[in-house]
Design a binder for these strands. Structure first.
Lengths: 219, 219
DNA sequence: TCTGACAGGATTGTCGGACAATCATGGAGA
DNA sequence: TCTCCATGATTGTCCGACAATCCTGTCAGA
């Protein structure tokens, strides 16, 4: 997703919005007005519109006709829907990537070790980063750009949640045990078990997310 | 996808492009220039740009920075990737929709009958329509808009293929046997079998598509 | 002849401004 | 209190312009 695009104006704006969402300056559900953004960043409204469109396609913003865009926020229901799709796709990624990962498990094991360390050190940012890399690895090794792209879009749609999840570390760290199960199944060459472990893991994440208070959801 | 959007200018343009692709007036891989389209349809370039963006997000067009858009065309490799994702998602749709479909199989059976009739009458357009409805039904009954949306995007990406497939009817009709297998598994309440039947069916479609000559692919 | 640099044309990227279309809000009147 | 409408805010669309970039054909030099 999000083409390199040199250093175009639109790209700059899109980056700015993404960052603002990432570190909470833009709250989920918040409405973004074009003119506002244009003047604040010293660019034309056209460029802002364009950036908004691109971010909408990427899943970060939500677009409503004649109403403009808002920072995307999902209802509990939509979260369930998203995790269902994600589970199916991550399971697919695991299956497709298994042979290659079994043959050359270095990166996989490195990420697992990195997460081990992060858990031991109670280092949430490091864990979060490694976790994202862990999940992205499967799609990447599966060598299916469309799959990677689709999963990225899904991640973008719940961008704000990753941020909100940082508050309660314990449960997030708990999910790490499932990572190990996935890796073991892969090393054993057991595709069905690996897929199932991934499905379970994704559903675990879903449950974790659903435990957040209502204020983090739309609807 | 493609919001109703009243009858806005952008929507009109987008429809026009979609239709043109559907009936072959715009060839896959063909480049579309904004000014051209703007003057031909008597609208501003801004609106054309916007329509192109939307269609790009929908998967019908491909966008390259500083080069504009082209009618999307995939390589054989990309086709395989797409069908892999599609298989996983259609299997998910089958699993999720199974209980509801088993309880109320009317529409499912009606579509199956419609396809039976189309095959008997050698009526390709009718078969094609019913087939699309058949596949869409699962996602719809699964009651997961995100899933429906994602599958629609995938379909749009290979829009031109549906058109090209009309040439050789026999093999397409052959795939109908697999439809029946899916339905039977659903009526029997056998989720695993239904999923597997759907996976097989989707992969069958993939093979069929791959039998087309090189001229229909990018790369 | 072949290769590479360059010029020119074509097309996209961005800008600014303008106005119509639509939505949201709050107040007037029933 | 509720409904309807005026009003302001914002998006949708148009126009025209120019810079940035890409593509192509040409020409000089090896």
């Amino acid at each position: 997703m999000s083409e390199p695009d040199s250093i175009s104006t639109v790209h700059r704006i899109a980056e700015a919005v993404t960052e603002a969402v990432r570190d909470g300056r833009l709250a989920p559900g918040q409405r973004l007005t074009e003119a506002d953004f244009a003047s604040r960043h010293g660019v034309s409204r056209s460029s802002v519109r364009e950036a908004f469109r691109r971010l909408t396609a990427d899943g970060l913003l939500a677009f409503e006709p004649n109403r403009g865009v808002t920072v995307r926020i999902l209802s509990r229901r939509e979260i369930d829907n998203l995790f269902a799709v994600r589970g199916a796709l991550e399971a697919l990624a695991v299956r497709l990537s298994l042979p290659a990962l079994k043959a050359a498990p270095e990166r996989l094991l490195a990420l697992l070790a990195e997460m081990d360390r992060a858990v031991a050190d109670n280092d949430m940012p490091a864990f979060s980063t490694a976790n994202a890399a862990f999940h992205a690895l499967f799609a990447e090794v599966a060598d299916n750009p469309l799959l990677s792209e689709t999963l990225t879009r899904l991640s973008n749609s719940i961008y704000w949640l990753q941020f909100r999840m940082l508050v309660d570390r314990r449960q997030v760290f708990d999910s790490h045990a499932e990572h190990r199960r996935i890796v073991e199944a892969i090393l054993a060459g057991d595709a069905a078990a690996a897929e199932e472990a991934m499905r379970t893991h994704v559903d675990g994440s879903r449950k974790l997310v659903q435990q957040l208070p209502d204020s983090h959801f739309a609807g």
